[in-house]
Every structure is written in structure tokens, then in C-alpha cells.
């Protein structure tokens, strides 16, 4: 099936199995490997991307579903001013450990700061509650997002 969509602000078209996972399309067809597979079943958030501006687990999204839509990955967000600001904050707190979960956290945090942006710990925890991190204990992640809310 022909699928046309916007990927990190560029129009693209692919011919693919309509049930193929968005995660595989991003990684295999476009070599954007920032989007990770941690579980393949919606449980970890390492594969988070924005679909029409909303964070989704790309391991559970099928190709047919992205036709005519906009997809943003961590690579795309890193180019946006707000993405850059978030990266600065995560960097400053030394929050990043193994980093496998972080492109996902970047995407979800970006969505939070952009759409809500209140410097409120409870809200931030809730917004990030679909992203698992096994290394950090999360506190430095919260700190970074709070910092980004303040600076934005």
C-alpha cells in the first residue's frame, strides 16, 4: 500500500505492508535509529514519536494509520528550538545514563512542555508515566523538564 506522510517536516511516500509497524518504517526505511525498541508491546515508551503532535508508542502503530499524517522523531525534535532547550536541560543535570530511553523521554517531554508547560512536578510525572527508565530513578529527568518549563 502507498503511504504518504510527513516525517520530521519532510513529505515522504513509501510502498509498504499496511500492517507494518511505524517503528520499523522509521528505523529501517529512513535509518532514523533514535527511535528504539525496548519491548515491542507498548510497555516502555522507548519507541515514542509524535503522531500529529501527540506522543504514541510507534511499536503499536501500523503503517496504514500514518497515511496523511505527520510524524516527528527525536531526530526531528532535536532540530526544533524547544527540542534544543530540552536537550540543554537534560545535559545540564547529567540526567542521561544509558540513554536508551531518552529519545522517548525527549519526545514526551517536548509534547508536555509545548502543550502544557506548567512547572508542576505532579503533572510532569503523569505526562511521563508511559516512559520507563531503568537507570536513573527518574528524579533527574523531572528536574530537567521542570528546568525546561521554567526557561521556555
Amino acid at each position: 500500500m502507498k503511504i504518504s506522510f510527513k516525517l520530521n517536516n519532510k513529505n515522504v511516500t513509501i510502498d509498504t505492508d499496511p500492517m507494518r509497524r511505524l517503528l520499523d518504517i522509521i528505523r529501517e526505511d529512513f535509518h532514523l535509529t533514535g527511535t528504539k525498541e525496548g519491548c515491542g508491546e507498548g510497555e516502555c515508551g522507548a519507541c515514542t514519536v509524535l503522531l500529529d503532535g501527540k506522543p504514541v508508542t510507534s511499536c503499536l502503530v501500523n503503517a496504514v494509520h500514518i497515511d496523511g499524517k505527520e510524524v516527528m522523531t527525536s531526530e526531528g525534535i532535536a532540530q526544533e528550538p524547544l527540542g534544543k532547550l530540552l536537550i540543554d536541560c537534560f545535559d545540564e543535570t547529567n540526567a542521561v545514563q544509558c540513554g536508551f530511553c531518552f529519545p522517548g523521554f525527549l519526545v514526551t517531554s517536548y509534547h508536555y512542555v509545548k502543550t502544557d508547560g506548567e512547572k508542576n512536578l505532579d503533572k510532569i510525572k503523569k505526562a511521563l508515566s508511559g516512559n520507563i527508565c531503568r537507570c536513573t530513578g527518574y528524579q533527574k529527568i523531572f528536574e530537567s523538564v521542570m528546568m525546561a518549563c521554567e526557561r521556555n
Binding site: 540526567a95 540513554g99 531518552f102
Partner: peptide
């Protein structure tokens, strides 16, 4: 390595 881990590179 924090920045390249974040932007996915």
C-alpha cells in the same frame, strides 16, 4: 555522550 544519546545519533 548525553547530547548524541538524546538526539538519537
Amino acid at each position: 555522550d548525553a547530547r548524541p544519546k538524546l538526539d538519537g545519533s
